[in-house]
Design a protein around this nucleic acid. Structure first.
Length: 431
RNA sequence: GGAGGGAUGGCCGAGUGGACUAAGGCGGCGGUCUUGAAAACCGCUGUGGGGCAACCCACCGGGGGUUCGAAUCCCUCUCCCUCCGCCA
């Protein structure tokens, strides 16, 4: 949610920003509702004051005959107050709903562009391996996995339908090793605090993180208990300090969490249906920062570098792309994607998406800090970034580390987390 | 799932219809005293909103209601605690 005062004072700047985002939001409606709300509020408060004073008088009057006319008058005032309160509730609700539809505004440094095709690759480390480097034609993971007996698509579908899969044996263990290793890596090398979170949350968390109302169709929802399955750890992490005022000296607060993520993928029907790139359920290690506003961009660059560190340690080529205005998404003021090269499917895979949401989520979830003791509380900035998304990192490992005989080498850094297994190879099957 | 008890400011805690403009304490900040500190004493110390301002309004877990007037009465929801049951 962006600042209502800012919209009121700079409506044209907001509209201009929305044009750059290729987004629409009911700004004129917001301005009208805001004006209405303040009109109603002023009248209402004047009447409440009048009633308050009169009620005090009534309480002190002994003469019932004198009292009665004043009581009658105040009864009428009470009815008008009641009316105005109803109108205020209605207008405030509509105003809030309208504000919830406004996306975050882009940071001034974000390049203007229409869509993802105009995103800017700002750096790349490592050269993608070619067929010549391999000495054979590298296979995509959806062929490698089943051949090695570590991926089973048919049984996933049998259990849960399309976009579900089963991991087996060393495939499953590889993913588990990655989770452990990445958590330890961020805790030990980057100083994050590990946190274990609920995977299903209350509706208000969804509003706080900016998931509702916009993304309702992409969220799994348990109707009976009105709980919502998280599509990313960003949701419970944003709400971890909801309605809190943090001390300046405890910022930045850096968290890292592993969670499964659940997404209905209503908007990507038919896309990325092969393999494990886009499932309804996937695992992710997520980094998250609560920072002071004037430190957030410095912390943001660090966050991206922390994600890249994982790519470096795995020795897989990666690049960083900066999102243009048209591809920023709803909550980010600035966003980078980290992509790993996958030689089998022949594409750059988004393994991390890093966003600086500035005060957008903090305002929704009311996360604030006190700049100085005794000073007025201000909203913090919130930053999130995958560190990294698992199935895609597994894809990159399988496809980059495949050998001519169809086996897959285990990256050295992961071996201690995999019982020193060095090679994933097909089980010998009795004929 | 059943029975009972609770939810008040940063924290503890009093308050069962009208001076609550929420007592008192703790903590924090400032001051006096002191070479300095402690102690003692004095003062200040929540959040949000409206208004150019003086100032005003709201908030005692959330929502709704009764009343001229609600922290206080009624309804409802949520959460916490104790005990019982079930259970990884």
């Amino acid at each position: 949610m962006i600042d209502l005062r800012y919209i009121r004072q700079h409506p044209n700047e907001v509209k201009e920003a929305l044009r750059k985002l290729h987004a629409e939001a009911p700004i004129d409606e917001i301005l009208e509702l805001d004006a209405d709300r303040r009109d109603i509020l002023q009248e209402l408060e004047a009447l409440r004051h009048k009633r308050k004073v009169a009620s005090k008088q009534i309480g002190q009057m002994q003469d019932l005959d004198q009292r009665q006319p004043l009581i009658d008058e105040m009864r009428a005032v009470g009815e008008r107050i009641s009316d105005l309160e109803d109108r205020l509730r209605d207008v405030s609700h509509r105003l809030r709903q309208a504000l919830y539809l406004v996306p975050n505004l882009p940071h001034s440094s974000v390049p203007v562009g229409a869509d993802e095709n105009e995103n800017v690759v700002i750096r790349q480390e490592g050269e993608p391996k070619t067929e010549r480097d391999f000495g054979f034609k590298p296979l995509p993971h959806w062929e490698l996995g089943p051949r090695l007996g570590i991926l089973d698509f048919e049984r996933g579908v049998k259990l849960s339908g399309s976009r579900f899969y089963v991991m087996l044996g060393l495939g499953s263990r590889l993913q588990r090793a990655l989770i452990q290793w990445m958590l330890d890596f961020h805790v030990e090398k980057h100083g994050y605090t590990e946190v274990y979170l609920p995977f299903i949350v209350k509706e208000e968390c969804m509003w706080g993180a900016g998931q509702l109302p916009k993304f309702i169709d992409n969220i799994y929802h348990d109707v009976e208990d009105d709980l919502w399955l998280v599509g990313t750890a960003e949701i419970p992490l944003t709400n971890l300090h909801r309605d809190e005022i943090l001390e300046a000296n405890e910022l930045p607060k850096n968290y890292v969490a592993y969670t499964p993520c659940f997404r209905r993928e209503k908007f990507s029907a038919g896309r990325d249906v092969r393999g494990i790139k886009r499932g309804h359920q996937f695992d992710k290690v997520e980094m998250y920062k609560f920072t002071k506003p004037d430190e957030s961009y410095e912390e943001f660059e660090q966050l991206v570098d922390d994600a890249e560190d994982i790519c470096r340690a795995l020795n897989i080529p990666h690049r960083v792309a900066e999102m243009v205005t048209g591809d920023l998404g709803f909550t980010a003021a600035k966003k980078y994607d980290v992509e790993m090269w996958a030689p089998g499917c022949g594409e750059w895979l988004e393994v991390s998406s890093c966003s600086n949401c500035e005060t957008f989520q903090a305002r929704r979830a009311e996360v604030r800090y006190r700049p100085e003791p005794g000073a007025k509380a201000e909203h913090v900035h919130t930053l999130n970034g995958s560190g990294l998304a698992l199935p895609r990192t597994v894809i990159a490992i399988l496809e980059n580390y495949q050998q001519a005989d169809g086996s897959v080498a285990v990256p050295e850094v992961l071996r201690p987390w995999m019982g020193d297994v060095e090679l994933i190879k097909a089980e010998v099957v009795d004929v």
